[in-house]
């Protein structure tokens, strides 16, 4: 039953790899980041599948760590998008 799991992992890696073409093509930085996000999720799936197929201990903790950080880069990025001109944006003032 391990081979199908590995095959699934392989397919997922290949699929998200094709998705990485977005990093090459862009056109915008946002598109590139979306490709990375997809890669992250696909990576977690592939990791889980190989972990269950090969039985290396401790891999689920690696997946846990990756899942925790899935939104990390995107959050930082979106923050930067807004710092350019957020003063004029909402007109709110901080206390």
């Amino acid at each position: 039953m391990n081979e199908p799991l590995l095959a699934a992992a392989g397919l997922i890696v290949l699929t998200v790899a094709v998705g990485l073409v977005r990093i090459l093509r862009g056109p915008d930085d946002v598109d590139r980041l979306m490709a990375v996000q997809l890669l992250g999720t696909g990576g977690i799936a592939a990791l889980l599948l190989t972990a269950y197929a090969t039985g290396v201990p401790g891999v689920d903790d690696v997946a846990l760590g990756l899942a925790l950080l899935a939104a990390f880069a995107t959050m930082a990025f979106v923050n930067l998008l807004e710092t350019d001109d957020d003063e004029t944006e909402l007109g709110e003032t901080e206390p």
Binding site: V30, L33, M34, Q37, T41, I44, L48, D60, D61, A63, L64, A67, L68, A70, A71, T74, M75, V78
Partner: peptide, 21 residues
């Protein structure tokens, strides 16, 4: 439990970042 937590975390992150983007 870890599997479920992983899914939940990705679900949460995915939904929130999608909204942010």
């Amino acid at each position: 439990f870890k599997l479920i937590v992983i899914w939940a975390l990705v679900l949460l992150s995915g939904a929130s970042t999608a909204q942010l983007i």
